[in-house]
Computed example of a mutant assay.
Amino acid sequence: MEKIIFAGGIHGVGKSTLCRDIAERIGLIHLSASELLKWKDLNTNDEKNKKVTDIPDTQDRLLKGLVAAIEQNGKYILDGHFCLFNKNGDVTPVPFDTFAGINPIALLLVTGDPNHIASMLKERDQRFYAADLLAEMQEQELIHAQMIANQLAIRLFVFNIKETNIEQLIHELNESFT
């Protein structure tokens, strides 16, 4: 793979908006895991449903979509997840092999207030998610992101959507490409 920063965060935290902003400010191409794996095609009954029936299959689709989308010498930010809701609604880490296949140069975990995220999801998707479930998922994403960063020997940036200085983050992410 080429130079990719992987940005994860729970549904509704604002990672896509943040990734588009980062991409524009430092000249990256923004990619979405949902678009690469064609989530709308997989979830034809309800694309706003966040439960994933076959996590290994979706991750295989993601890697194939990523290979097809990237160009030599490109610089990318890919937004996705470190954990997903499985078909039973349980928080499940994305397999490490997915991240090994992406081969990111850095990881970014976007975090926020679970109560605010729950209200945003209710407004955006017309879905109720309990704030405690979102808090659990966010904590599991942090644990999994730290493990991935350690195993890949790359840097993990944790960005709280309401508290962290975006200028400092952009400066540090930009340095990741040098």
Rank of each mutant, 00 (worst) to 15 (best):
H144E: 07
K51G: 00
G65R: 06
Y129L: 10
P114M: 07
K50P: 00
Q140R: 15
L62Y: 10
K87C: 02
P95Y: 02
D54W: 00
P56G: 04
I143D: 13
I55A: 01
F82I: 08
P104F: 05
D125K: 14
L133K: 14
M137G: 03
L78P: 08
A118L: 08
D113V: 10
A118S: 15
V52C: 06
Y129D: 07
C83M: 06
I117H: 07
P93Y: 00
E139T: 13
N86M: 03
L84K: 02
L134W: 09
N73L: 02
F99H: 10
C83W: 02
Q138T: 09
V67Q: 13
D54Y: 06
L133D: 13
L66Q: 09
E47G: 00
G74M: 04
K64H: 06
Y129C: 03
F99Q: 11
N86P: 00
R124D: 12
K64T: 10
L107M: 14
L109K: 08
L107Q: 07
K51D: 04
T53E: 11
N86L: 03
Q138D: 08
A145C: 07
E47N: 12
D125Y: 10
H116E: 15
P56Y: 03
A68T: 10
R61L: 15
M120S: 12
A131L: 04
Q146N: 13
N103C: 07
Q72D: 12
M137P: 10
D113M: 09
P114I: 08
H116L: 13
F99S: 12
Q140C: 08
G89I: 06
D125C: 12
D90S: 14
N73E: 14
K64F: 01
K64S: 13
G74C: 05
Y76S: 07
I70A: 05
A145F: 05
G74H: 03
A118G: 01
N73Q: 11
L121S: 02
I77N: 01
E136Y: 04
V94E: 04
L134R: 08
G80P: 07
P93T: 00
L66P: 13
R124I: 10
L121A: 03
P93H: 00
K48R: 14
Y76N: 06
K87Q: 12
E71K: 14
A100C: 08
K122H: 11
N73M: 02
K50S: 13
K48S: 15
T58E: 12
K48M: 09
Y129T: 02
K50A: 15
H81M: 04
P95K: 09
P104C: 07
H81S: 03
E139G: 06
